[in-house]
Design a binder for these strands. Sequence first.
DNA 1: CCAAACTGACATGGCGTCCTGTCAACTTCC
DNA 2: GGAAGTTGACAGGACGCCATGTCAGTTTGG
Lengths: 208, 208
Amino acid sequence: MSVVGSPTRPYRGVSATDRTARRRADLLAAAFDLLGTVGWEQATMTAICARAKLTERYFYESFASRDELLMAVSEELADRIRGVVVAALDEAPPEPAAAARAAITVFVEMLTDDPRVGRVAIVEAGATALLRRRRHQILGEFADLIVAKSHEVFGTDALPAPRDRINALLFTGGLAEVLATWLTGEVDATKEDIIETAVNQFVRTAHQ
Amino acid sequence: MSVVGSPTRPYRGVSATDRTARRRADLLAAAFDLLGTVGWEQATMTAICARAKLTERYFYESFASRDELLMAVSEELADRIRGVVVAALDEAPPEPAAAARAAITVFVEMLTDDPRVGRVAIVEAGATALLRRRRHQILGEFADLIVAKSHEVFGTDALPAPRDRINALLFTGGLAEVLATWLTGEVDATKEDIIETAVNQFVRTAHQ
DNA sequence: CCAAACTGACATGGCGTCCTGTCAACTTCC
DNA sequence: GGAAGTTGACAGGACGCCATGTCAGTTTGG
């Protein structure tokens, strides 16, 4: 017998839970790398396992399906992005243009410094019905962040509901589209052009 | 033999070219319907042919692959949307807010009156690498339309390049995202809220 | 009316992925 | 040292879609 089951003993000096966690992390990293380079259609279970140097059996140790793994990749990345944006907002001065510039800058740089990040977070995020739904939720959460910050910096001058949220969605969706276009090299502009235009848009539209 | 080859004779009173064209149209309609309801993953060749009441052999009479058919569906729809928007712009008065409202209104209504249109044009348009590329091109063309109209209505007051185009991409991408969210019922707003917010955004951002 | 063209239903093979199973080699614990 | 746990490599079946082939029945033109 001795199928994989639930490993309990240390192996090569590593505990059972650590080994399982390591394999899970390897799978996540391999999936992220493939998703961000060759794309969803080529990021097959076989390819992911090969890149992670793991047998397909260990795939099912941590994930029930390919979709579940790719969702986890997307989730992890969204958390990282949200983290840096929230941190930038917390440190920024409570002045509209400065706060917007700080948040937009870290957001844009995060998505463009490593092309795989942008591709996974924006381009490949619409590949399956499941990923699309999650992508909507995530952009919606970013919109909520923006709405909260808008009311904070603009006070009673902020847009009233539901226009505050619609405007925030217009903003996040637009920025995602611009970055996707920019990542594929179809727009002739610098990173600063994008940041400045986005900041300008936010400052002009987020109040009455 | 008499395989399908290139039909030449009339059949049931219909000429050969008309029959081929009819089958092609049936396939396009079936693919559009499936794409707009059950989505890309379920819009398989077998399912499309079954809905069109045609044998798979006739699929290859008009299309080389499933991707080619779905691209044609997307293409046809983009042409229709561009048509109504251009028509609305041509008829609109040369005043910023009025022109924007006219174009945005027909655009939004086109995509929301028939839910399949919105789903095909926006939601399912990111399913494959090929569709994504085409989607970018199409949104880029809409951005070009907006840039041209901006310079027309705002004159020397319009944004300079490349910010005029970045701003237009922010706008088209944002509107697409908002409509996608609205189509899935995740935002609590009326169609008028969306149109007003979008018009407001354009009027405030498309000039210096 | 007959041969040829056309159509629809079905059948078949190829292909790639998913998913499970087997087995030898290695490591741990007693 | 030996039994049991762990790992990696590989085999093989199941399944679904793609792609092509066969064939009987219908329609057309001479």
